[in-house]
């Protein structure tokens, strides 16, 4: 794969940097395939926006091998899609519509017809950064973050879509909400996160009740 940089992150970790997010997702998928095949003895594989971190690396020669890997392009249609019901009634719908240059009622339509994929997790357990929206539909973060974003809030920032697994502060633009957000994260369940890296996701408009 061209444009792969392998950086050391201390004596036991490697940070693999790719030219773009799509390449990082493809590289991550390849790492998971190789680990499943028993070819990659590492403790953690942590995808980021344009990187994949390998932690618990004992084999110093791995860095050289990573650079020479042939990695197939990402198959975004791989695996079954998780369907998330969502009510598109967020307080930032108008701001997002303006940023996108469309009418307010176009936002749910454009969002719900997009095929998403969890690129990476972070911020809180079970919070996935979902890619899939085309580049021209990126939106800035809010200039003033909210001190309280409710659990289940469906939100946009930069190229990403996310659903808050629990109430927390946040600076993303809120366009809707998922009923029953407790399904996003349950440490007693396997898998604990509904939206783990690599998961395909579709948002399905739900009826407003009550």
């Amino acid at each position: 794969m061209s444009g792969v940089r392998v950086l050391e992150a201390g004596p036991r970790a490697l940070l693999v940097e790719l030219p773009c997010g799509e390449d990082a997702e493809a590289f991550h998928a390849e790492l998971l395939r190789r680990r499943a095949a028993g070819e990659l003895p590492v403790r953690e594989i942590v995808p980021g926006a344009r990187t994949v971190l390998l932690d618990g690396v004992e084999d110093r020669a791995l860095a050289g091998r990573l650079r020479s890997w042939t990695v197939p392009p990402l198959d975004r249609g791989e695996g079954e899609a998780v369907e998330i019901p969502v009510v598109y009634d967020g307080p930032d719908l108008a701001d997002v519509a303006e940023a996108w240059g469309v009418a307010v009622d176009e936002v749910p339509r454009l969002h719900a017809r997009t095929e998403f994929r969890v690129a990476f997790c972070g911020f809180a357990p079970g919070f996935g950064y979902l890619t899939g929206l085309p580049g021209h539909l990126s939106v800035p973060r809010r200039t003033t973050p909210r001190t309280r974003v409710p659990a289940g809030a469906l939100a946009l920032a930069g190229p990403y879509t996310g659903v808050y697994p629990r109430t927390s502060p946040g600076g993303w633009q809120l366009i809707g909400r998922m009923p029953g957000p407790e399904a996003l994260w349950d440490p007693g369940r396997e898998p604990a996160a509904l939206l783990g890296p690599g998961t395909r996701v579709r948002f399905v408009p739900a009826e407003v009740r009550g």
Binding site: G10, A49, L53
Partner: peptide, 10 residues
């Protein structure tokens, strides 16, 4: 910096 994985001791 786009979000990336962090290690203990970083």
């Amino acid at each position: 910096l786009p979000s990336e994985g962090m290690v203990l001791g970083a």
